[in-house]
């Protein structure tokens, strides 16, 4: 367990917790929750596209973490381990529902042929409903692009760690990232 504590040691600023909320035990698990509940919930939210489903997923993920924290071997970073559990869990949920993205996502070459705002900045005049626009955009992308962008957006993950999580090489991640950005920009502009 000491290795877990060491891995958690360079803790990022935990999200503020309301005083009335119950304490989580044991202490190591509470520290993991404080540090990682935000990124885990956000990843689940944007992968599943629904706040209550994301809450369920995050709950199950942390339950798994609680059960297996003692087995965490510290070879990968705790963040990578948590993300792997989250990704697998969300995939399972999506497969179970069989309700999203069935035959709706276009071939990824579609975005290559469109006049695209991809090389220009993404501009926002209105931040209201930004979350909805982002979700709409992500939902329109192939799962691979969606996951890639969400993982790369986490600055604490290296390309190598993203590669590990997406089962490909870091070079492949770099290569696909350009196409994923382009696809995102095209789809995002459609939501304006």
């Amino acid at each position: 367990m000491a290795s877990v504590v060491e891995t958690v040691a360079p803790v990022e600023t935990p999200s503020p917790t309301p005083p009335a909320t119950p304490a989580l035990e044991p202490r190591e698990f509470a520290a993991v929750y404080e540090t990682y509940s935000r990124p885990v919930y956000y990843l689940a939210l944007r992968l599943l596209g629904d706040a209550s489903e994301a809450e369920d997923a995050a709950h199950d993920v942390f339950l798994k973490v609680f059960r297996h924290l003692g087995e965490f071997r510290g070879e990968s970073r705790l963040r990578t381990w948590l993300y792997r559990i989250t990704i697998n869990h969300c995939r399972n949920r999506l497969q179970t529902w069989q309700r999203r993205h069935i035959g709706t996502v276009p071939d990824d070459r579609v975005w290559d042929n469109l006049p695209s705002p991809a090389d220009s900045p993404l501009r926002l005049l209105e931040t209201k409903e930004l979350g909805q626009r982002i979700q709409q955009t992500l939902d329109a992308l192939p799962e691979e692009y969606r996951l890639l962008l969400l993982l790369v957006a986490d600055e604490r993950l290296s390309y190598e760690q993203v590669a590990e999580l997406t089962h490909q090489t870091a070079d492949a991640v770099r290569g696909k990232l350009h196409r994923a950005r382009r696809a995102f920009a095209v789809e995002f502009s459609k939501t304006a």
Binding site: R38, P39, Y41, L122, L130, G131, A153, R181
Partner: peptide, 14 residues
């Protein structure tokens, strides 16, 4: 897109 997602993530709390 990642910058935008980072901004979005900062707005979301569990």
């Amino acid at each position: 897109a990642e910058e935008l997602l980072r901004h979005d993530a900062a707005q979301v709390t569990p």
